[in-house]
């Protein structure tokens, strides 16, 4: 495959090794986070939900960044691999955004007192989720690859720009959700666990995007084969 971002010939086993490393890193980081962090002054042990909620949100943001880059590069260079990369990242972003919302809900119930509220951070995140669903639905409904790539790049750029709004929402508007933490507001006892978990989530993110990208490439190969077969059959009929 010329111009291939990830060679299609890499065996699935290599991805499996990356996957095992990523999940093992997650186990290690979570165990350390769970065992080494003292209960928080306000939240008690509930602070530990931070180690899954925050890394899930961060990696979802990164996935949307990949969607943005892939979409822009596609419109610029018109090479299929960028479109497939954006599509792969979008599906992973959808999974991680949904996970982030669900984890936030589980965290919000005992700390804020509600599963859900119409706070700008929560609302913009839900909108982002629906936009991503729209992006993927659009892809699944357009059969012609060139058109699909062009249209979904336009929709993908719009959706992924919304990430900026989600990220800045806690600063622009008065919200129930707290503003971003920084090293000065998080005690070192929690910072280490958070960083390690974020790193493990990053590995999981890379694993997911690579795997999904490979699936996207193979799907295109299957599509191309089917087209070639139809063409061959058509010629046979004419002869």
């Amino acid at each position: 495959m010329p111009g291939s971002f990830v060679p299609a010939v890499v065996s699935r086993r290599r991805y499996q090794i990356l996957g095992i490393i990523a999940l093992a890193a997650l186990v290690g980081a979570e165990l350390l986070g769970l065992s080494a962090s003292p209960p928080d002054r306000d939240m008690g042990h509930l602070q530990k939900i931070m180690y899954v909620h925050v890394p899930a949100a961060w990696s979802a943001f990164l996935a949307f960044f990949v969607v943005f880059i892939g979409s822009v590069l596609y419109l610029w260079k018109r090479e299929e691999r960028y479109d497939l990369l954006a599509a792969a990242a979008a599906e992973v972003a959808l999974v991680l955004t949904a996970l982030t919302l669900a984890l936030g809900s589980i965290w919000g119930r005992p700390t804020w007192g509600v599963w859900w509220t119409w706070d700008p951070r929560l609302t913009t995140t839900a909108i982002l989720l629906v936009m991503t669903v729209g992006y993927l639905a659009l892809r699944s409904f357009v059969d012609e690859p060139d058109r699909r790539a062009r249209w979904s790049a336009a929709v993908g750029i719009l959706a992924s720009l919304n990430v900026l709004v989600v990220y800045k929402s806690v600063q622009w508007w008065r919200t129930l959700h707290q503003v971003q933490s920084s090293p000065s507001t998080v005690d070192p006892a929690y910072a280490l666990g958070l960083r390690l978990n974020a790193l493990a989530f990053l590995l999981v993110l890379v694993y997911f995007i690579l795997l999904r990208y490979r699936a996207a490439r193979l799907e295109r190969l299957v599509e191309a084969q089917a087209e070639a077969r139809e063409l061959a059959q058509g010629e046979e009929l004419h002869v």
């Binding site: 999940l23 997650l26 979570e30 042990h45 509930l46 530990k48 939900i49 899954v52 909620h53 899930a56 999974v95 949904a98 996970l99 669900a102 984890l103 589980i106 965290w107 119930r109 005992p110 999981v204």
Partner: peptide
Amino acid sequence: FIVAAYGLTWVVLV
């Protein structure tokens, strides 16, 4: 809630 959060994370990722 902590068990639910970690459990959900693992279910979704796996």
